[in-house]
Design a binder for these strands. Structure first.
Lengths: 300, 300
DNA sequence: TTCGCTCATAAGACCAGCTTATGAGGCGAT
DNA sequence: ATCGCCTCATAAGCTGGTCTTATGAGCGAA
C-alpha cells in the first residue's frame, strides 16, 4: 500500500529524465546541481528499488535500456503532474505583491489554471501570479473590490458589474463503466427522456454540474431521484468506475479515465449539457499587461 | 528549477489525501502505518514548504481549508500518476513465476497498460503480471515461443501465426499550437491534399505513426518533406506546443495537451488516420484464466 | 470527574542522500 | 606511446529530515 516505498521520489525521477535528455549521468547531475557520484548512486538505487536495469553505462555515456525508456515515459507523467502542482501552489502562496492576481472558480483552478501558469511562466518568466479560488460570486467580489485583476468563472451568465468573454466550454459527459449497458449505445444515443428517468450517480444538490443538468432536463420531466449523491467529484468518479451506475461529470474531470478506458462516454442526443467558461473583469476595465498575457493563453 | 524542493514528496502527498478522506490526522497516520506525531509534523512541514495553511485543526478532527482542497486535488494527479508508474514498474520487474505474462507494443505499454493493471489489481489482487515491451514482431516472437500469454500490438494486420481481436483504435490527430492558423479551421477542415503538401513536425522515418500517415496520404501525392524530424514523441509534442508547426500524434499522446488547450486538434476531412489496437495470442489458443480477465478489461 | 477522542511538543535514533577524493576504462590528438 | 578528457564507480564521512516514544493540553460526552 505505501506507494512511497515502491516509487522513486521526485528527485530521482527528475534525474532519470535528465539522463534521458543528456545521455550522460554526469551532465544530468550538473543540470540538477548535484555531483556526478550522487547521480550515479541515485540511479543505481532506483534500479535496485525497481528491480530493473534502466541505463546502459559505457565509457562514452549512458543510454536508457528498453525498460528504462518505458519507465522514463511513466516517470514523465509524474513529473508533469508535479510541475502543475508547483505552478498552482506557487500562485496560491503568492500575495499582494504579485503582478497578476487571479480569482478563479474551483473547476478552472483545479484543471486548467496550472497548465496556463506553466505556459505563462515559459513565456514571461518574471510574472508573479497569485491565485484565489472560490465560487462565481466570490470571484466577482474580489474583482469588484480591486483585489484581483482577472477572474475565471463557469456558468450561464456574466456576474453583475463584470465584463467577460467566453474562453471555452465545459461539456458535461454522461459516463459509465465499460461493462454497463449504456457503454454499448454508440449507435443508439440515449434520449433526454431516458436520461431524465434513469437514476444517476451525482454530486450533491447545489453543485454546478447538477444545476446544468437540472435545467437541461427540466423540459423532459426533470431529473429523477439520484442513485447516489456524493460529496466530491472524485467520489462520483470512483463510483462510476466501479460500475455503480452512469454518472454525469465535467469533460475536464474524466479525460484521463476516458482515454484509458476506465470509463466510457455515453452519447446523448438532443440536449446540450454544456456551460460556458468565461474570463471576467470589472466593467470597462479591459485586461492589460500580465492579465492580458494570461487571457491570450486561455483562448489561444 | 529543482522541483523537489518546492513539491512535497509522494509520502506527504499520500498523507494529505488520507487526511482529506478521514478528516483526522491520527486516522490518516494509522492508514499509512505511521504514528500520529509523524503525520502531524509532516503536514506542518508541508504547510511551511508551500506557505499555505492546508488543514483546519480542531479537537474534533481536521478538515481541509479551501486552499487545502485545491492542493489536494492537484496532489491527487501526482499520486495517480505514481500509481500507474508503480503498476507498470511492478510488471516490468515480474518474471517467469508470474501468473500472467504480457507482451505489448511501446505505445500500449506506455499509455494504456498501467491503467488496465490498476483495474486488474483491484478486481483480482492476486494476479501477478509481468510485462515485456517491444515492437510488433518482438511481441509475436514472445507469444510463439511460449514466453508470453497475451500480447498487444498496434498496426494494420495481425502478425502471422497469431489470432487476435481489435480492442480499440488509435486515432492520429493533427495538432497545432492554439496560435497557429490551422487551429482556427474548425468549420473548414484541412483537406488531404493540403495535409500532404504541408511540412509537418514528425517522428523519424520508420515510426508507426509515420507509416500510417504515409499510407493514408499516398494517393494524395504522398507526404511532403518534414518541417522537423525528431526522435521521440515527447520532442514532437514540445515542438508543436511551442508553435513550430502542425504535428501528427497519437490521440493517446495528446489528450492532456488538448484538454488543457496547450494544443488544438485540427480537423481533417476525407482521410482515416487510424490504426487498430489489437490483443493477440498464439493461433487457436484463446486466452483463459488471468489472460482472459485482462482481455475483458481492455474491451469493456 | 473521567474517559476518549483530537492535535502538539520534545528528545533521541536512524538512514538516505549529499560531498569530496580517488580510481579505472575508453577514445582521440599530439 | 602517452597525455588529456571524457565517461562512470567506489569509499568515507557529514548532515538533515523523518521516524519513534513519551508526554501534555483542549474539548465533549457519559
Amino acid at each position: 500500500m505505501p506507494l512511497t516505498h515502491r516509487v522513486p521520489d521526485l528527485g530521482a525521477l527528475e534525474l532519470l529524465l535528465a539522463v534521458a535528455r543528456h545521455g550522460s549521468l554526469g551532465r544530468a547531475a550538473r543540470e540538477l546541481g548535484i555531483t556526478q557520484p550522487a547521480a550515479s548512486s541515485r540511479v543505481r538505487s532506483m534500479e535496485r528499488q525497481l528491480g530493473v536495469a534502466l541505463v546502459d553505462r559505457s565509457p562514452r555515456g549512458s543510454r536508457l535500456t528498453e525498460a528504462g525508456s518505458l519507465v522514463t515515459d511513466w516517470a514523465r507523467r509524474i513529473v508533469e503532474a508535479a510541475e502543475a502542482f508547483d505552478a498552482g501552489a506557487q500562485a496560491l502562496r503568492g500575495r499582494r505583491d504579485s503582478r497578476l492576481r487571479v480569482a478563479a472558480s474551483m473547476t478552472i483552478a483545479e484543471y486548467l489554471l496550472p497548465g496556463w501558469l506553466i505556459t505563462l511562466r515559459a513565456q514571461r518568466p518574471d510574472t508573479a501570479v497569485s491565485l484565489i479560488a472560490g465560487n462565481s460570486s466570490a470571484v466577482a467580489d474580489r474583482l469588484l473590490a480591486g483585489e484581483a485583476d482577472l477572474g475565471f468563472v463557469e456558468g450561464l451568465a456574466v456576474p453583475d458589474g463584470l465584463d467577460g468573454t467566453v474562453i471555452g466550454h465545459d461539456r458535461l459527459f454522461v459516463v459509465a463503466a465499460p461493462g454497463h449497458a449504456w457503454a454499448r449505445r454508440r449507435r443508439a444515443p440515449v434520449t433526454p427522456e431516458e436520461l431524465a428517468r434513469t437514476p444517476l450517480v451525482l454530486r450533491e444538490r447545489g453543485s454546478g454540474t447538477r444545476q446544468v443538468l437540472d435545467s437541461a432536463l427540466s423540459r423532459y420531466g426533470g431529473l429523477s431521484a439520484p442513485l447516489m449523491e456524493l460529496a466530491s467529484t472524485t467520489a462520483v468518479k470512483a463510483a462510476a468506475v466501479s460500475g455503480a451506475g452512469p454518472a454525469v461529470l465535467s469533460e475536464l474531470a474524466v479525460t484521463e479515465e476516458l482515454s484509458s478506458r476506465r470509463l466510457t462516454r455515453v452519447p446523448v442526443e438532443g440536449v446540450a449539457l454544456e456551460r460556458d467558461l468565461r474570463a471576467v473583469w470589472p466593467h470597462a476595465q479591459r485586461p492589460v499587461g500580465p492579465a492580458r498575457d494570461l487571457l491570450g493563453l486561455t483562448r489561444g
